[in-house]
Design a protein around this nucleic acid. Structure first.
Lengths: 184, 184
DNA sequence: CACGTTATATAACATACATTATATAACATT
DNA sequence: AATGTTATATAATGTATGTTATATAACGTG
């Protein structure tokens, strides 16, 4: 049998990069095949259909997002650094951000669910300890900062605005301090 | 000449309602024709092409949004009532919200631009007067509440979460008070 | 009431995409 | 080197959409 010129990894990588550079909507059969420089067959030999490939691309994007965030986490300031990282992600990786966060996510029914979804227990604990707050207060601060962060990230991603990092940090800091102060 | 059974208004109304009930992506030729119960020709007799019709639908949606917001404004509490109305809009008219706010909007380059875009001078003035704040402080509060509101609206629209109005109001109030308090 | 204008319908054509069928060519095994 | 397996390419098919061409039918005007 002939050796395979095209590997599954090549396809997934090409598709992921296409999503990253051109947007998820551009992940269509012909674009990926052209990108690799092959016909459509190798793709169908590894993936049942395009939906299958797109799911994998989504998974890659999520992994990329997570490593993006975690590589920027400051352990001394979990909440603030995660908020910054999220907005930076929206600014730098707009296509991935839209793909991950501007589409329906199932199973969220109230804000506490949202907290569970994104919540990081350590960050909550850090806020509790640092400001001598109850768990509920810390959770609420966390939740409100997530909402604010999400709003900022969205506006940046949607508008394509190139807002300087200092300004982003400034507003995130202000929101964070305001939410803390409200509980003191 | 035969009298026209189909008017331009019928088409635009059908298309707008389709966008409102089923989502903007569903505004496609055949759906609208079927909805009205006509062929594709009447649509092309009034609109150059589908893009033309979609633009008009977008305009209708914007007008609908504005009257939705203004009908809910409390003149005594401009900022808070507008924030609430925006989140309510995202909750009740999710399809229109996505169409209007989850797509690119040109010409925004920094947060002060965003302020100019959505800014309501009267609301700013009300905050200045009520809390004896400088114009800059009031503007900042306004901007931060817009960001928070947008974040909440987005999360609700995207997740489809049916969060009770009381909870929405509670969090908006908390954010508002926190931003005010930060300046005192 | 015949005629011409035009509103609407039907149907053809174009394009973009996914999917499947067939053809070709590489190479491992004999 | 011949053969069979299979990786890949080319080409056909299907479906959804938009657009345009042709046909039909309504009706105002002479």
């Amino acid at each position: 049998m002939p050796k395979q010129r095209i590997t599954k990894e090549m396809i997934l990588e090409a598709a992921f990069n296409y999503a990253k550079e051109k947007g998820f909507e551009q992940v269509v059969l012909k674009n990926i095949a052209d990108e690799i420089g092959c016909s459509v067959q190798p793709i169908y030999s590894y993936y049942k259909n395009m939906g299958d490939l797109k799911e994998q691309v989504y998974g890659e994007a999520m992994a990329f997002y997570q490593s993006f965030i975690y590589s920027r986490v400051d352990n001394e300031r979990l909440l603030e650094s995660m908020a910054r990282a999220n907005v930076e992600f929206a600014k730098q990786e707009t296509n991935l951000f839209k793909m991950l966060f501007l589409n329906k996510i199932d199973g969220l029914n109230c804000f506490s669910d949202i907290y569970e979804w994104m919540g990081d227990k350590n960050a909550t604990k850090q806020v509790m300890d640092r400001y001598s707050l109850s768990e509920n207060a810390a959770k609420e601060i966390y939740l409100m900062l997530i909402i604010f962060t999400h709003g900022m990230a969205n506006m940046i991603a949607i508008s394509g605005a190139n807002i300087p990092d200092e300004e982003i940090i400034e507003y995130l800091e202000k929101a964070y301090r305001a939410f803390i102060k409200a509980h003191q």
